[in-house]
Design a protein around this nucleic acid. Sequence first.
DNA 1: TTGTATGCGTTATCAA
DNA 2: TTGATAACGCATACAA
Lengths: 347, 347
Amino acid sequence: MAATMHDVARLAGVSIKTVSNVVNGYPYIRETTRARVLAAIDELDYQLNVAARNLRTGRTGIIALAVPELSLPYFAELADSVIEAADVQGLTVLIEQTGSRRERELEVLSGARRHLTDGLIFSPLALGAGDEDLLRVDFPVVVLGERMFPDSVDHVTMQNVEAARAATEHLIALGRRRIAVVGVHPGEVVGSAGLRLAGYQEALEAAGIPVDERLLGEAGLWHRATGAEAMARLLEDGAEPDAVFALNDAMALGALHELQVRGLRVPQDVAVIGFDAIDEGSYSNPSLTTVDPGREQIASTAVRLLIEQMRSRPAEHVPQRVYADFSILERGSTVVEAPAVRPRVHA
Amino acid sequence: MAATMHDVARLAGVSIKTVSNVVNGYPYIRETTRARVLAAIDELDYQLNVAARNLRTGRTGIIALAVPELSLPYFAELADSVIEAADVQGLTVLIEQTGSRRERELEVLSGARRHLTDGLIFSPLALGAGDEDLLRVDFPVVVLGERMFPDSVDHVTMQNVEAARAATEHLIALGRRRIAVVGVHPGEVVGSAGLRLAGYQEALEAAGIPVDERLLGEAGLWHRATGAEAMARLLEDGAEPDAVFALNDAMALGALHELQVRGLRVPQDVAVIGFDAIDEGSYSNPSLTTVDPGREQIASTAVRLLIEQMRSRPAEHVPQRVYADFSILERGSTVVEAPAVRPRVHA
DNA sequence: TTGTATGCGTTATCAA
DNA sequence: TTGATAACGCATACAA
């Protein structure tokens, strides 16, 4: 049987309260007492029962992170960053996969695990405009992304419009004029797809290039497969793009694959830029030019804001909105890389 | 304030025990009673306090999954599969990233979160031969992989030797003779690196090809970057490989990248095969031939074994060892793909 | 500086 | 089929 505080107290010849004080780092304890308690803890191999503490304090030391799926590299890398940032603060992360399904996103918010976690970092996809009220929950929440009502809750978000504009401008500066977009969600305004498309349109407009509807490739889910499919459709419909702005890297890599399977050269025939800066893009062939949206900054900021909420009383919490810095990483899918360093090893 | 069972009981005019019975699906309840309780639960928006249940039952409904890092796509996809498999069983997954650090792997086993989780699915990297005793813990554990002492604990593992042998044989069947390995851990016997290398050696031996030490490329961590580096070293040291067996896909993709940067054609000059069947390999250029080690099967089996342990008394539990099925996925990095389906869109 | 006593919300025992 | 009541292990108000 696992030892309890009582056992430790008995062995150390003190009260349970003293053991509790030692365990929780209460400062006013005589050194000799503390030493005796610590010795007893060691002797009994005592471990605090977290469940009991939770029941008593209402805190668990666990925060939830809700993402669409870990199979999407961006979210896997985001989860990695959040776990590390939380670990620094002594928090553990419970990951909820919503599969982008509205029903599961609602479940996360309804707080089925409310008693299990102290707060939630939420990256919604299915919820959107019109769902603002759902976010008025009575536990700490930080939203990643821009879909939700601005004033009621903390947001940490990318500079979607500005970054997308910069990405498009990068392509324009290379002389491209028929720039396709992969991953469009028709009619969407407030989500990542809508905002990034807006940035694209801004850039074209500023350059005096008309928007050609045929260059807008839809893709609901942002996977490699859907990127490849959208690219295939664009090519088969005769859109004749000389560049592609994929709204995330996974789709960009799918598009890159599709282009090359069809014998098109990247970047000579078609330049490709993505969005997210996942590690995978550094090693594709050619490597992928992309927007680095500041993932680590987003993760650490989200954890920080969540902790602030957890510590303050709900009434006195002022919702914040933080934008992460972004940058363009120029790589081989838009700029021709230097030729091979040395001749081929084989004849 | 959140409602408790007491509140529900009072509103429904029953005892708290009856509410508990309803919540837990106890069958012998009069229908009218059950209906009244359910109505009260609905009315009060009651949600079970998991912490209290945990304290009472000692169960949390959470299982831990310890992996090196989610940034490695194989582990991200594995985590995805485990979460889904656990969800089906009503379990939630807490992910621990060990970063392949021995110290953190020990922490996981020492059970700092023992009271928080009902069991552990553990994918060790740093621990290995000689650490068998560490696994004799008093909570349910399922180990993924082969590093540990066979008899004491449940294992779910890939057929590392056989699959690696099949991968190598695939290359040999293509007429390759100078087959490099990327990701070797010198001296290791019992881990994935050692076993897969053994499979490689078996295949060479069976084909009468001598093992050339210069073709064995070391890489401690199995990342894209280390794969690229190992590949670069092999090429620069004049090993002159005509094929590469990377011990996982991430390294294979790094190697693929490195080869192409250096102007080598894949598969014509050098064929490449990986191990893991991560989604990324379907979309690389060329797409990656790889070993599919049965990830989903591994995940669901691990969850099943863990649940069996959780339900049985430790004494009566017979440790099992399950091998997942594997298969070779032939793709463009070893077999020349069909030429472009249609001519280039651009002149 | 340390001890005593109480209750967090649930489940389990036993009786009715 | 249902109810009363005692734990589960800890933190904390209050006392000493």
